[in-house]
Write a protein that binds this DNA or RNA. Sequence first.
RNA 1: CGGGGCGUAGCGCAGUCCGGUAGCGCAACGGCUUUGGGAGCCGUGGGUCGCAGGUUCAAAUCCUGUCGCCCCGACCA
Length: 493
Amino acid sequence: MAEITKRADDYNRWYQDVIREAELADNSPVRGCMVIRPNGYAIWENIQRTLDAKFKELGHVNAYFPLLIPKSFLAKEAEHVEGFAKECAIVTHHRLMQVERDGKADLIPDPASKLDEEYVIRPTSETVIWDMYRKWIQSYRDLPILINQWANVMRWELRTRMFLRTTEFLWQEGHTAHATEAEGRAETLQMLEVYRWFAEEVLAMPVIAGVKTPSERFAGAVETYSIEAMMQDNKALQAATSHDLGQNFARAFDVKFQDQAGKVDLVWATSWGMSTRIIGALLMTHSDDDGLVLPPRIAGTKVVIVPIWKNDDEKSAVCAAAQKLAAELRPRIGPVHVDDRDNLRPGWKYSEWERKGVPLRLEIGPRDLAAATAMLKSRHDGAKRTAAFVDIADGVQAELDRIQRDLFDRAAARLVANTHRLDTWAEFTDLYANRGGGFAHCPWCGDAACEAQVQEETKVTIRNIPLDGDETPGACVRCGKPSRGRVLFAQAY
RNA sequence: CGGGGCGUAGCGCAGUCCGGUAGCGCAACGGCUUUGGGAGCCGUGGGUCGCAGGUUCAAAUCCUGUCGCCCCGACCA
């Protein structure tokens, strides 16, 4: 059994150790790409299930667009190409041929199969989607279009990290088309709120919702909104984004419609996404030195039952009781696992399921069986309590609810404790150089050059301008020029 | 892509400087005793030393190239 590095000793190594020990993902033979293992994918499936239901509840539908995008599409929106050109994988041939090199068989792209127009592996799908929207939209009666897709995308990042930044990642991308600017903006904000709800209520991850500064805007957007979460090392992680694209993509792809009065206008657009990166955020929000900690609402396995016995008679009695309890719990609780392996002792099983982040463990031994109770132990705080067999589902559900609340409260308390209101540059540099960093709400002048200067000197960036932020006029924390309100600063992943 | 570190059994590592039959701990497998917080004893199996060339009688070890991982930068969800 490999050890998990303590967070205090080496936070980055701890992060990787937890991924390995909880069997969330593994490195693949391809640079920067990871294999998401069943334990990790179960989390993603729960994310998909929950978000997908919410999207549909709000009128969205799913569709699928191709992985390959004609290279020329990317060039149609000026800022978009500038944002993504440097990180695209490109398909140039469609056939391999066998050749002999130094006496050995080798495969090379067949020169005769070189493509006239090369394809880009999608870094995001706005272009191919808006090319199709041109065909589908003629009248205001065709609007709105509220399409989402679950897909993989590739961005050839220079430096990768499991879940947080991989060359290929999974996400959902919503792409909507609207008849009015107001409708587009409302959709953008609605989806931002969906992400806030999901992060806080399902992932137990408190976030700050706000609008990005122009320099952090999505390539091609009029306005970008984000939710920002605080990790245990006090760094910020952008957990999701929602973009108001205005008419930029409609203009680039010539998507027009006729309104009720017969007037022709460009269509208004939004896009919004959450990716597998959120799994890294989830890990860094709740987990501890013993391994993964998961909120019950997103955990793949909600409860593990560990039967305890001393001999074959006890084993059969206790295992039968465990299976019966599991069957009783499943309809109400969801996935419940009975760990009846007989080659491992209970202590080993405890530590294994703790590493893997199962929120609640239920122990049943001969003594419990005699008393018709089970021992409950919650992963995140080690609290133990007994629950009677008669209303076991109630007891377990109550404990899972408590865990979910507790994890949110714990993360929220950490967020508050490490968030500061700062007015002077001396306090600002002191916070990030000597006091462990965190979130800082500070007045800012609105000048991109000043923002860049802060980043250069401290590696701290403006995460967003909180929607419910302080709009009291003041003096910029960096340059002292007039400020129209406070913005959220932090070091970011 | 620049700087640094590292690829040896599933995991963690020693061996590399100074070439000479590939080792240790944990895990795995078999047996017996065990089982309420990481069990004990005995036995067994498993590695073309990241990959490709080269030097040599002989390469994990020396040389060249290459791929991957980690950390720091630049870029980013």
